[in-house]
């Protein structure tokens, strides 16, 4: 039996004649942070959406906690959450109301205590009763991250979670994620266009290009394999080869 929490095998998604994801396979172990790197249109978002059950794969399988996502959607998604710079929460609700709805949706016990924890951890106290539409983009990013961590997920999918944050808050967020991983064994699939962040956060990285995995390994291994100075140089080389 595999020790991987997430097992993706031969995953493919075609939209008509366009192949968004092409025969992608990877595992994520317990407490592991896997970086998903690639230029725009490489298939990162489609991979995320398939792992969240929002898009049906054309072929291949996604298993989490030993269960197949197609057959055990509810049981799996109960233990998975996500955050993205590109999503929001209902604007007409306050920060606290939004968190409370999410907590109820996942059937959380000690809802109030967990919301208080998140508000404290992500320094949202001053604006917890503010309407979501009045938040700055950085505050919104923190709220979506709080929403993702609130439900005690075992797998977290993060799409550019620090994109609109100032360096101080971004650093704090990374520290929180690493602490969560340390204390709860949280497994994370992480995308970012900040190469330093990817190197700092990821145990392993897979590089997607035109829907295919073109490189896989630790940041150091990938940099060495391509004979470049750092991950950013690798990114530029691969992206410009498209």
């Amino acid at each position: 039996m595999s020790s991987a929490v997430v097992e993706v095998r031969n995953l493919a998604k075609r939209f008509g004649g366009f192949t968004a994801v092409d025969d992608v396979s990877f595992d994520i172990g317990r407490g592991e942070i896997l970086g998903l790197l690639g230029p725009n249109g490489a298939g990162k978002t489609t991979t995320f959406q398939m792992m969240l059950g929002l898009v049906t794969p054309t072929s291949g399988t996604i298993r989490m906690f030993g269960l197949d996502l197609q057959q055990h959607r509810e049981a799996i998604l109960q233990q998975v959450n996500f955050s993205s710079t590109y999503i929001s929460l209902p604007y007409s609700l306050t920060v606290e109301e939004n968190l409370s709805v999410i907590a109820r949706l996942y059937g959380m016990s000690d809802m109030a205590g967990r919301i208080d924890d998140m508000v404290k951890k992500l320094e949202m106290g001053e604006w917890r009763h503010k309407l979501t539409r009045k938040l700055s983009s950085g505050q919104m990013t923190r709220l979506t991250l709080a929403k993702a961590l609130l439900t005690n997920p075992k797998v977290l999918l993060l799409d550019e979670p620090t994109a609109s944050l100032d360096p101080d808050i971004a650093h704090k967020i990374r520290a929180i994620l690493l602490e969560e991983r340390q204390t709860t064994g949280l497994s994370i699939l992480y995308t970012s266009h900040n190469m330093r962040e990817m190197e700092e956060m990821s145990d392993r990285i897979i590089f997607l290009q035109r829907g295919k995995i073109v490189a896989e390994g630790t940041a150091k291994e990938i940099v060495a394999r391509f004979g470049q100075a750092d991950l950013e140089e690798v990114f530029l080389k691969l992206a410009r080869e498209q």
Partner: peptide, 18 residues
Amino acid sequence: LEEIWARNLMNLFASPLT
């Protein structure tokens, strides 16, 4: 429509909600 206007469908259907 409220969920569409709030761009909340992704949050809902990426949760265990059926």
